Lab assay of single mutants.
Amino acid sequence: MTEYKLVVVGAGGVGKSALTIQLIQNHFVDEYDPTIEDSYRKQVVIDGETCLLDILDTAGQEEYSAMRDQYMRTGEGFLCVFAINNTKSFEDIHHYREQIKRVKDSEDVPMVLVGNKCDLPSRTVDTKQAQDLARSYGIPFIETSAKTRQGVDDAFYTLVREIRKHKEKMSKDGKKKKKKSKTKCVIM
């Protein structure tokens, strides 16, 4: 069974824990209790493949930012979460993405942009803004509501699919490099 290491990042209060708990335990946590770091595991079937999701729910508070490099190193894919009623959390996505790329030393890291709290009427981040940002990053965008469960499975499952595509691409690139290195030079 394939294991996928997913990391949920975003500013404090955007609903990272609520999304994760909704996926794992099928219930909505409405009281806000700032996370330092929590880890969850769940076995699911995605596109006919049974897999184990190892999900790291991270601290959004700035005082825990020193811990970010460590979990970013171990993560295979990242859910970059903002709240649709919090423009600052949307603007912060850029910083999370840049930090992930720096730590992973790669421009090509599996990510999904997630606009959470889409059940709320007080939207300050337009869907088109988020779609445009995701398009500019070359990553999928999904709106979710941890409260109603809308888009929750889709967000995590899409990230797994992005990781699969990335692994497939990397193995193809690896095979191309191996083929090239088999060419021999004969000096007579």
Rank of each mutant, 00 (worst) to 15 (best):
E98F: 03
H166M: 10
K172I: 09
G10C: 07
I55D: 00
G13T: 07
G138R: 13
V112E: 01
Q43E: 13
G77A: 14
D57P: 00
K176H: 04
N116I: 12
K184F: 04
C80S: 04
T183M: 12
G12S: 11
L133E: 07
G174V: 06
T127R: 04
M72Y: 01
S145I: 13
M67K: 01
V7A: 09
C185Q: 15
D57I: 00
R102T: 10
E168D: 09
G75M: 03
I24P: 00
K175P: 06
D105C: 06
L79Q: 00
M188Y: 09
S39N: 07
G15M: 02
E37V: 01
S122T: 08
E62L: 03
S106E: 08
D47K: 14
V125A: 10
I139M: 05
V125T: 09
F156E: 02
T35V: 00
R102E: 10
P110E: 01
D57Y: 00
D69S: 05
R164M: 10
V14F: 13
V109R: 03
E62A: 04
N26F: 07
T124W: 07
S106R: 14
H166L: 08
I24L: 10
K177M: 11
K101M: 15
G138L: 15
F141C: 07
G115D: 07
T124M: 09
T20V: 08
G12A: 13
K101P: 01
F78M: 03
P140H: 04
K176F: 05
A130Y: 14
F90Q: 15
E107M: 14
L6H: 02
Y157P: 09
I55H: 04
E91G: 08
L120W: 10
T35C: 00
I139D: 04
D57A: 00
I100Q: 01
S89V: 04
K180R: 09
S17T: 09
L113T: 07
G174H: 03
L113Q: 04
Y64I: 00
K147E: 08
N86W: 02
L159D: 01
R41V: 10
M72E: 01
Q22A: 08
Y71P: 01
F141D: 11
D54E: 08
V45S: 12
A66D: 03
H166P: 05
D105W: 04
V186S: 12
A18F: 00
T74K: 01
K184C: 08
Q129D: 15
L56H: 00
T144P: 12
E107D: 09
G138M: 06
E49K: 11
V114P: 02
K184P: 09
F28G: 01
L79S: 01
L56C: 04
T127S: 09
E63L: 03
V114N: 02
V112N: 01
D126H: 07
C51Q: 13
K128L: 06
R102K: 15
M72W: 00
G12N: 15
Q70P: 02
R41G: 10
V81C: 10
D30P: 07
S65I: 09
R123T: 11
L6D: 02
V29S: 08
L113C: 05
K172N: 08
E63V: 03
I139R: 07
T20W: 00
E37R: 00
A134F: 06
T87A: 14
S136G: 07
C118F: 10
I84S: 14
K180N: 08
Q131P: 11
T183A: 12
N116E: 15
I187H: 11
T183H: 09
S39C: 15
K117R: 12
D54S: 04
M170A: 14
D54T: 03
I36H: 00
K172P: 06
G174R: 10
Q150G: 11
C118D: 14
K178I: 12
K182I: 13
V112W: 03
F156N: 05
A59K: 00
G138H: 05
F82N: 06
E37P: 02
T124G: 09
V103P: 01
D126T: 07
S106H: 13
Q70I: 01
K165V: 08
V9M: 06
T158N: 05
R123D: 14
F28V: 03
Q43K: 13
T158Y: 06
T124K: 09
K167N: 07
L56T: 10
T127H: 06
D108Q: 13
D54K: 03
Y40V: 01
R41H: 12
L53D: 03
A18W: 01
D38M: 00
G13N: 12
I187T: 08
C185I: 14
F78I: 01
L52A: 13
I187W: 10
V81T: 11
G77E: 01
K184W: 04
C185P: 12
D132N: 06
Y32C: 02
V45P: 09
V103F: 14
D69H: 03
S106D: 12
S106T: 13
V125N: 11
A18R: 03
D30R: 11
K178P: 09
H94L: 14
A83R: 07
R164Q: 15
V81R: 01
M67F: 02
D132T: 04
E76C: 06
Q150S: 15
V160W: 08
Q70W: 13
M67I: 11
F82M: 08
G174F: 02
I100V: 06
E3M: 14
Y71I: 00
Y71T: 01
A130N: 10
S181W: 07
R97P: 02
D47A: 09
M170K: 07
F28A: 02
M170F: 12
A59M: 00
G15W: 02
D119S: 11
G151K: 04
I55Q: 01
V109E: 02
Q22D: 15
F141L: 11
Y4T: 07
K16G: 04
V112Q: 02
S106G: 12
I139W: 05
G151A: 05
H27Q: 14
Q99V: 02
D33R: 00
V125W: 09
